[in-house]
Design a protein around this nucleic acid. Structure first.
Lengths: 211, 211
DNA sequence: GTGCACCCATGACAAATGTCACAACTTGCC
DNA sequence: GGCAAGTTGTGACATTTGTCATGGGTGCAC
């Protein structure tokens, strides 16, 4: 199932970059883009995205107010804030409000994995944010550093993934590593499940592009 | 062979976004990042990148001057400008200077293909830029939609290959470009024949690896 | 010990994929 | 005009792929 994301940021370059990066993910689709807090509310109401990825500081209507409004109507809304700097006060306010994540723009590479975690019910804080929070909260281990794969592959699976990424078919793979063709299929099927992919071609692409 | 790219932009978010996007390409590596014109010069001298991807407007030392300095010392330097708006005057100055490309940030998705073309000795202008230039220069057809392929594949085949390389299945591809699923199969079958490949996964790998 | 995760395997099934033959229509070129 | 190349389409077919249920085996940790 693909993750529907709504992006809201006043900078159009940020919007398009994020869209490009996220659309590059096979399991993520950007359903709309907005540039202000009020627009976030209306777009959310119209598209009902799985996740709202939103800037905090915006000239025309800030993100926190929009989040407050949205969460009043949709308490289950998954809102992830995206900001340039990790401002202590904002972090606390955002989390108190019920935000599912607080990422900083510099760590772009972590956004996609973070969104997947959020879809699994977890909350995610960016590395810098986590560092700032240390000491304030008791050292719970809920928030692990994003960037590590949520679902790790077994050694055997990795081996098979490499062969898939060479374009080998199941029969060839089974002969290469001396197991049955059915087992190869099972391993691949398991990997597709774990990684949220649809077919072996996406698995090959995943192998080359990371995610 | 991987393309070594040096990125220079005053906005750190732009730098990291571009790095993320380009590092996602198997054939592109970002060797360094800079934030000003003078820094561009020193980093270029140190790293000797294949391509310098640089913003034009920067608070501390603009891109055009830096390009002028660099091209005086390294006439073969490949410099591609990246800017927010397509400003007529800048375009002309940049090209006169000997820039190999002029892209606008909104078209992020085209950057990687454009860089590949530049590596092949071509020059590349962003879509918006091309539109502005029409009438000024005689209508040469040098700048076609970026896309990369040595083999004798037709335009349609290339389009489909890109979609295959994203892991899309035949039904999705057919809906994306408004043809029947059978036709998609035919095109893919034809490409596999031409390229001596066995299945779509190898086609995807071929797209990223070149073989 | 009891779990748990990993690995292997099988059979059956639905879906996707790749091939082939054939045909029509357009475009550009000689 | 004729020809070649590209694009689109169909129908049939064999193969490949992915899923599911189910089972057995190992080794490790509590």
């Amino acid at each position: 199932m693909t993750i529907k994301v709504l992006i809201v940021d006043d900078d159009p370059f940020v919007c398009t970059s994020l869209t490009t990066i996220l659309e590059g993910q096979p399991d993520i689709a950007v359903c709309a883009q907005g540039t202000s807090g009020p627009e976030a509310v209306s777009l959310f109401t119209r598209h009902k995205p799985d996740i709202l990825l939103m800037d905090i500081q915006m000239p025309a209507g800030d993100g926190l107010s929009a989040a407050e409004t949205l969460l009043a109507t949709y308490p289950a809304a998954r809102i992830v804030f995206l900001t340039t700097f990790s401002d202590d006060e904002y972090i606390v306010r955002a989390l108190r409000l019920g935000a599912k994540g607080y990422l900083i723009k510099q760590e772009v590479a972590n956004i996609a994995p973070a969104l997947r975690l959020v879809m699994c019910g977890q909350s995610v804080l960016g590395g810098e944010v986590t560092a700032k929070m240390e000491g304030l909260v008791h050292p719970g281990e809920a928030h692990r550093t994003p960037g590590v794969l949520p679902a790790s592959l077994s050694a055997r699976e990795k081996t098979i993934m490499e062969l898939v990424a060479e374009g080998r078919d199941n029969r060839e793979i089974s002969q290469e590593i001396f197991i049955s063709e059915g087992t190869v299929r099972n391993h691949i099927s398991a990997m597709l499940q774990k990684l949220g992919l649809k077919n072996r071609t996406q698995l090959a692409v995943y192998y080359y592009r990371g995610n």
